[in-house]
Write a protein that binds this DNA or RNA. Structure first.
Length: 253
DNA sequence: GCTCATGTTCCCCT
DNA sequence: CAGGGGAACATGAG
């Protein structure tokens, strides 16, 4: 699931249940999710108190009252769960005073990082472009001006703008009526403005859900049927940047 | 058995 | 150098 809105949802889970709480224990059920540390190294977190989390793109940074911080990147199947039933894909469990926070992840495409100091946190995320929620219209134009490939590939590039994923980008392009294969230089200023507005809109409307919702009027709601929710013709399916891309061949010219 | 999946990285071409 | 294509990572679901 995890694109920017999903990670924002996990951030809310962390804020509600883990921020300000003391870590009583760390249990690693699957070493495969630890990307830069051995399980014993996580012991530095025990008896530390979590601070307020912050999100940059699809990363969630969870600092403690000492130097170490825990960083999560959820890949395609990760999530953060508070209590609830145990699950076979719970890979890391943080015991807090009043319950357990679990990192759950079926495919383990990304995982959990330990940063011992603020500088290490920065190193882990410094390759990212500005967070999608922080990009102004002016900056959006400046960022696009540097690129010339397919517009979809550019929007998905985390080094250009951080946080947009396959669903969100397809959705914004659909709402802006722009063919995802279009080369950036071919986009008019008006089209760039419209794209910016739709990216903002899809983000804003997704945030309350904590995911990109499958609304009936949205492309997300039509991914399985393959029919354009606006005009009813069959959606086109191509691959861009290695990702399945859906668009309306009639309306997205 | 086969294909596909909301992500990223690495390697090889053009 | 920029950008495209494909494979790899790991684990399911249909």
């Amino acid at each position: 699931m995890p694109e920017l809105p999903d990670v924002e949802g996990f951030k809310r889970v962390f804020e509600r249940h883990a921020a300000g709480k003391r870590i009583r224990g760390v249990t690693v059920h699957d070493v495969g999710v630890l990307r830069n540390a051995a399980p014993e190294q996580l012991d530095v977190l025990v008896e530390r108190r979590f601070g307020q989390p912050r999100r940059h793109g699809k990363w969630l940074v969870c600092p403690t009252d000492a130097a170490p911080a825990l960083l999560f990147h959820f890949g395609m199947t990760g999530s953060l769960e508070w209590r609830g039933e145990e699950h076979p894909h719970d890979r890391l469990v943080l015991a807090l005073d009043d319950g357990e926070l679990r990192y759950r992840d079926m495919r383990k495409l990304r995982g959990v990082w330990l940063a011992l100091h603020e500088a290490e946190t920065e190193e882990l995320i410094e390759h990212l472009g500005p967070d999608a929620l922080d990009v102004s219209r002016k900056q959006f134009h400046e960022l696009l001006a540097r690129r010339r490939g397919a517009v979809k590939a550019a929007l998905m590039d985390q080094e250009l703008i951080a946080g947009l994923g396959n669903l969100l980008v397809d959705e914004a392009l659909f709402q802006a009526r722009i063919d995802p294969r279009r080369a950036i230089p071919s986009l008019s200023d008006e089209e760039r403005d419209e794209l910016y507005r739709k990216v903002r809109r899809v983000l804003r409307e997704s945030l309350p859900y904590g995911l990109v919702p499958g609304k009936r009027t949205w492309l997300t709601g039509a991914r399985t049927e393959g029919i354009c929710p606006r005009c009813g013709i069959e959606l086109a399916r191509v691959r861009i940047g290695g990702r399945t891309t859906l668009f309306c061949p009639r309306e997205q010219a």
